[in-house]
Design a protein around this nucleic acid. Structure first.
Lengths: 339, 339
DNA sequence: GGAGGTTGTCGAAACGTTTCGCACAACCTA
DNA sequence: TAGGTTGTGCGAAACGTTTCGACAACCTCC
């Protein structure tokens, strides 16, 4: 690779002048600048990021820390990563994919000690997350996709759960439903402290109350079989429920089985709405399910942008909440007659 | 951060001695070494990757180039990335996630010119891929997940399509089926030159012939609706078919709808097998589908390892083929009576 | 007892940038 | 004409490593 020195020689100027001309860091006479730019182009000069980073203490590399949940990564998480990578690239940054080990804090200590990354993007943030404490204490700039229990002091992008729940409730209320139930994510797959599960439950209850709808929750099926059982129990306990929102794909499949087992059909006898699931997944059901699709790529992009903004200048921490997108499917309809 | 010089001062030795002691790059007296190590530990010394890379021309950073298909990224592709990142980490490397723009070659030129990465991992490789030519010409070490038309000269990890097809055929033949059909990926979602689609079709035909099974293909439904139509056409043309392998999830959903529309059931009247789809997706169907799950994470790991091996020393190009894993579901059964 | 080898350490150069103080000429102003 | 002000460019130092030749001290063997 050609270096700054090669360019300087070819343009007959000093190395420092080339640097100044190429970076616009201080004024360079127009003629000289043109000569330098031409020499650089002819040599196909590319600045060496390592040298630049070593000197300037800024690498323009971001790390995306991702956990490896036992169940594997979902489509949603993938989109965080690709969205963040794309936004980073647009702004001239690179994204390092950093798997989290058993000890995330130690991992972070290592990663940030290397001098390789300018900032860290955290995902799968828990309500109480030790990583944020470490990063704050270490003075490493970071942003979150998701949020902790007390997130106001930290840049973050997250789902607007309140708006999402309101949209979902408005959707079924608009169809005429008067009683709604919600099946949350299973406690097995996500611990209690998993933000989305906790927040979604709360916001659904609030939205249903405000809309004057009957509301049932407390079910947390994590598989098709559990979904079927939960549905049967729900129908036994609350026979008036005509609309059901489900957070787990597999559980939704079980609900459909339960519906069929009763001789019922969707959407005639039950309106079924998926929550936090991609339209892609929702389209694989029969009938296709209405879903509230999380804005994952968007959140990834926002997270990366916030982090980069933070690196470039400061200001008060910012937070962006984005609601899920309601994608209507064939599973929404008016409430069944006789309820 | 503390530097090598800080450690040297504290241990009362020269900087170069610290470097030697810590890297084992040349012998250092045991006592000195111990003193140095202690000083390093006390200061929490971490080598600066940038400085090291600048000097040694080796950054231990790999780039994973990923395209952003219009349809979005699948679970499969995600696992390539996480698998590769994990393997890289285990071997002391880092993985840079690099989104591909409209002009992948220019992208590569840029990326490799930065001096930031030691090697490149390519995924979504096409049968004729301009990226491989560029990288070979530029002398940049790389490996592929997937393979080109003539892959023998390049390190790569890919699915063993032949074994996968044989396993699938053996599975249905073992259940007693005598006639099999295959619905490939749609030409819309993947161009003709997409390797997996091309190879899978060929290997299925071969495996069926070798097993003495009747075989039908040429269908390429890309959506639920197309899947239903293809199924109806298949039944009209080849009423003797009792087993069907489908590569597209959505198409499979359509097939299930078509089966139901005929008053048939799975698996009693049709054995349905998913190909190249995750067990997770297969479990969302009702009944759950038998699937040939691609070893995506494994391929990602293998790709990263191969690339790292290549960086550390040379040898002949290596290739690893891994078959899909057959995950039995509720959609496999003996052929329907009367066929 | 000196030639030759071995062992352990040091200092300096190099990697490719950025940054900063300084030199120098040209030009303006009083 | 002396003194100040711009505009432009140069050279050197610094960032934190690795690498390599030099060299002192010690051991070994004739």
């Amino acid at each position: 690779m050609s270096s700054l020195r090669d360019v300087a020689e070819r343009a007959q100027v000093a190395v420092s002048t080339v640097s100044a001309a190429l970076n616009g860091t201080r004024p360079v006479a127009a003629a000289t600048k043109r000569r330098i730019e031409q020499a650089a182009a002819e040599l196909g000069y590319r600045p060496n990021l390592l040298a630049r980073g070593l000197q300037s203490k800024r690498t323009r590399i971001l790390a995306l820390l991702f956990p490896t949940p036992a169940g594997g990564f979902g489509h949603t998480e993938m989109l965080f990563a690709t969205g963040a990578a794309e936004a980073a690239k647009e702004l001239g940054y690179h994204l390092l994919l950093s798997p989290e080990s058993a000890d995330p804090v130690d991992e972070l200590r290592h990663l940030t000690g290397l001098g390789l990354v300018d900032g860290v993007l955290l995902m799968e943030v828990r309500l109480d997350d030790e990583r944020t404490e470490f990063l704050s204490a270490a003075g490493v700039p970071f942003a979150m996709i998701g949020r902790t229990r007390e997130p106001d002091a930290i840049d973050h992008a997250d789902i607007d759960f309140a708006a999402t729940a309101r949209d979902a409730v408005a959707h079924v209320a608009g169809l005429g439903h008067r009683e709604l139930a919600f099946f949350n994510l299973s406690p097995g797959r996500y611990a209690e402290s998993y933000g989305p599960a906790a927040r979604m439950a709360g916001e659904f209850a609030t939205a249903a109350r405000e809309a004057g709808l009957g509301y049932a929750d407390g079910f947390r099926p994590g598989s098709a079989e559990e979904g079927r059982q939960a549905f049967e129990r729900l129908m036994a306990e609350r026979p008036g429920v005509t609309a059901l929102a489900v957070a787990d794909d597999h559980a939704a499949a079980g609900v459909l089985a339960g519906v069929a087992a009763r001789g019922w059909r969707v959407p005639e006898d039950l309106t079924l709405v998926l929550v936090l699931s991609s339209a892609r997944a929702a389209a694989m059901f029969h009938p296709s399910l209405t879903t509230l699709e999380p804005p994952s790529a968007e959140l990834g992009r926002l997270g990366a942008r916030m982090l980069i903004d933070r690196l470039q200048g400061d200001g008060p921490p910012r937070q962006r909440l984005v609601p899920c997108r309601l994608v209507p499917g064939g599973s929404s309809g008016p409430p069944r007659a006789g309820s």
